[in-house]
Design a protein around this nucleic acid. Structure first.
Lengths: 210, 210
DNA sequence: ATGCTTGTTCGGATTCAATTCGGAAAAAAT
DNA sequence: ATTTTTTCCGAATTGAATCCGAACAAGCAT
């Protein structure tokens, strides 16, 4: 941001701009969204955009940041609930909540997420990654038997990255070959089987070595 | 394309433009790549770009198509070799080949894949998806016991999409939390455990119902 | 209230990249 | 050699992004 809004009026302007960006973006996609459209929807002059944002790209960046922050806001309060559930239920619950989250506000987030990759939202994904990492860690602590698994960092890396992309990609497809529910079930099964198999292996190791 | 190149000279021009796009794109990213840069690198006038491409976006589209076609060119001849291997070996081999492929030409493909999402290259990914689907199908046919698994379409969807993204993302990260070998091993293990568990489940079903 | 300073808004002017266009040069066809 | 087709180009056009300075509002001391 070129400048920080000090007065209430200015803060409202900044907010209106971001809101307008979500709307314009959801409607036209990022490439076809012009500064004039954003300004018109926000009800401000074009020049005002540049008071608080260096350029159009930065507006989208702030949008992505807000999206990521809101997603974390979804995950964080969910954590204590998820860690009590069996792993497959936890995965299912998380993904269904995520879907509902994307579909609120007339699917605004969904439409943005669809185009989100079209922007550099990967860059802002790190906090989300951290939040999910934290969720995994919490989960493992509540289920000591899962700590027997090997390669926990590797597997959580795969599940988090692979999971995010599989979901976003699915949402981006106009005619996905499988339903969202099938995707959710598949991811839950995948995670479930992996942990079961690893725990079984760890137990047999115990028998052999101890 | 606005026009089709008929003479050899013209075909060379088109090729030079695409090559130049790869180079410019790898260096500056898609947003910062200008038509003038492409033209300069290709050694042609700006006007020439528009002889064979409707606009800049279309140049990127053709690039994406070439990238996808080249990737398929990697996978296709690999298929008969992979289908004979145990599943974990097949996954390892495929991923290592894919990494080498992305890193050739000074990482040109990798850099493009990194920004690829920034373009609409997802749109052109379908043939790649098909090729991988075909690989999975071939594999299943060569290993009849795996056909007992449930939800094969769902699981291949997850593995293909999740796998591609995990690899591209990992290779793009400046300081990844795990090594590439660990990632490969993790993905191989994940796939391996899943199939083992599913096959075991299917067998116990057989016992119960038959 | 009044004058002063700081913050805010705006839209015309400017800049810059994408795209167009018309004619010159090269290749092919006659 | 001449005509026709294909190719190439870069100056001119266009339109969106960005800048800027005047006009307007808010805060604040006197």
């Amino acid at each position: 941001m070129a400048r920080v809004p000090r007065q209430k009026r200015a803060k409202e302007t900044v907010n209106a701009i971001i809101e307008a960006s979500f709307i314009a973006m959801a409607e036209h996609g990022p490439a076809a969204t012009t500064t004039r459209q954003i300004a018109d929807i926000a009800g401000v002059g074009v020049g005002s955009l540049y008071e608080y944002f260096d350029n159009k790209e930065q507006i989208f960046e702030v949008m992505s940041e807000r999206f990521v922050a809101d997603t974390i806001g979804l995950i964080h309060p969910l954590t204590p609930i998820l860690v009590r559930k069996p792993i497959k239920d936890a995965v299912r619950e998380l993904l269904q909540q995520f879907r509902d989250f994307l579909q609120q506000n007339d699917g605004r987030y969904l439409k943005c997420a669809r185009h989100a990759m079209t922007l550099g939202f990967e860059a802002h994904m790190e906090p989300l990654q951290k939040a999910l990492q934290e969720l995994v860690t919490q989960y493992l602590m509540h289920h000591p038997e899962t700590l027997k698994m090997r390669n926990i960092p590797t597997m959580s890396y795969i599940m988090i990255n692979g999971g995010i992309f599989a979901v976003v990609r699915h949402l981006s497809e106009p005619a996905p070959p499988i339903s969202f529910d099938e995707l959710v079930e598949g991811l839950a099964t995948m995670v479930g089987h992996y942990t079961e198999r690893e725990i079984a292996l760890a137990s047999s190791q115990d028998v052999q070595s101890g």
